[in-house]
């Protein structure tokens, strides 16, 4: 079934909203009523229809608007896309993976025709029909990674594997929760996670790194991450913090429902075949509190999770100014009834 793509914005008038169907498929990340810190990796396998795991690379009603927002970010700040010179093979790996998965999941919107190294890529939502030579940079209007990630939802990092570590050596990062690719590019796994509180002492990163170094081709893995964002703004980069930081001081009991958003990242990790690098996809989903409380289970659970968050994480996630107001507002929708296990709506 063809997706009805929305015309909407992630800046200025913030017209982004989720349709009722899209709310039902939102990847709500909490499987219990209290917060628990964990690596929470699971195999990235296809899930049921009507979930974001219906296809391994998810395309939803926000696709066109998100790609437009990405183009705006890149116009203002081209350094949001960077790739170190040794990453070219991994760039082609990524282009192949994203074209194949999008074409497989949404044949009515995307078509890939391969004839040897002559490839034709048709992207109907964005009106693209390009023929190019796989492996020949000069036959595309951008580097392969930039080309395909201008046509795929989510942020994308390619990490190189060497010396028993992973290195952040390429990326397209325009929808990030306050980290800078320009600053972190070239860092290893421990270095780029340096500012994250608590997890280092818990050994979380050592275990995660060990796991990822052994990631196998054809067996992608995934985990959730989450934070909250005021207004449906995709570009909450440190670069633009002076633009979005003031939003955090604008939350009142009257506007919580519209302004406060749960921001969920579905992070998927894929071993790439030619380069042996790992593609790290950070797909961001936004849902405001009015939308969240339309699912009674989530309306009960989310304030309970917020209440049990450790202080270090409240600070790290930047929730300090509006967490209380949000919990108060949400508590109207929590009748204290027990919730069912798992993340999905009842």
């Amino acid at each position: 079934m063809a997706i009805a793509f929305k015309q909407e914005t992630f800046r200025d008038d913030f017209s982004y909203r989720n349709s009722p169907e899209n709310i039902r498929r939102f990847p709500f990340p909490f499987d219990r009523d209290e917060y628990m810190y964990s690596v929470n990796m699971e195999p990235h396998v296809k899930g049921q229809k009507g979930t974001v795991f219906e296809s391994l690379i998810d395309v939803d009603e926000h696709y066109i608007a998100e790609m437009h927002d990405r183009a705006l970010v890149l116009k203002e700040d081209p350094l949001r896309y960077q790739a170190l010179p040794h990453m070219m093979t991994a760039q082609w790996d990524t282009l192949e993976l994203l074209m194949e998965e999008q074409a497989a999941g949404y044949p009515e919107h995307f078509t890939l025709i391969r004839n040897g190294d002559q490839w034709r890529w048709i992207n109907r939502p964005l009106g693209i029909d390009d023929t190019f030579t796989f492996g020949d940079r000069a036959t595309l209007p951008y580097e392969p990674l930039e080309y395909i990630t201008r046509q795929a939802q989510g942020d994308f990092c390619i990490v190189d594997q060497r010396d028993g570590n992973l290195w952040m050596d390429a990326g397209m990062v325009t929808t990030q929760a306050d980290w800078s690719l320009d600053f972190d590019i070239g860092m290893n796994f421990m270095e780029w996670h340096g500012p994250v509180p608590l997890a280092h002492q818990m050994g979380v990163f050592e275990r995660a790194l060990k796991f990822l170094l052994n990631l196998q081709q054809g067996k992608p893995t995934r985990r959730f991450n989450w934070t909250m964002t005021i207004n449906p703004r995709l570009d909450t980069s440190p670069e633009n913090y002076p633009k979005w930081g003031p939003d955090r001081a604008t939350v009142t009991p009257e506007n919580v429902g519209d302004k406060v958003h749960l921001r969920v990242e579905v992070q998927t990790l894929w071993r790439l075949p030619r380069s042996n690098a790992i593609l790290f996809v950070i797909r961001c989903y936004l849902m405001n509190m009015n939308e969240l409380v339309t699912v009674p289970k989530w309306a009960r659970r989310f304030p309970r999770v917020l209440r049990t968050l450790p202080p270090e994480l409240i600070d790290y996630k930047g929730l300090t100014r509006y967490r209380e107001t949000t919990m108060d507002w949400l508590s109207k929708y929590d009748d204290g009834a027990p919730t069912s296990p798992g993340t999905f709506p009842d």
Binding site: I185, G186, M187, E191, G194, P238, G245, P246, A249
Partner: peptide
């Protein structure tokens, strides 16, 4: 001044301290 260092830039990261309330 954040305790986050980039070897590529040879520098620590500086982030606007009063962005939320100029």
């Amino acid at each position: 001044v954040r305790d986050h260092y980039s070897r590529r830039l040879g520098a620590f990261q500086g982030v606007n301290v009063d962005a939320e309330e100029p």
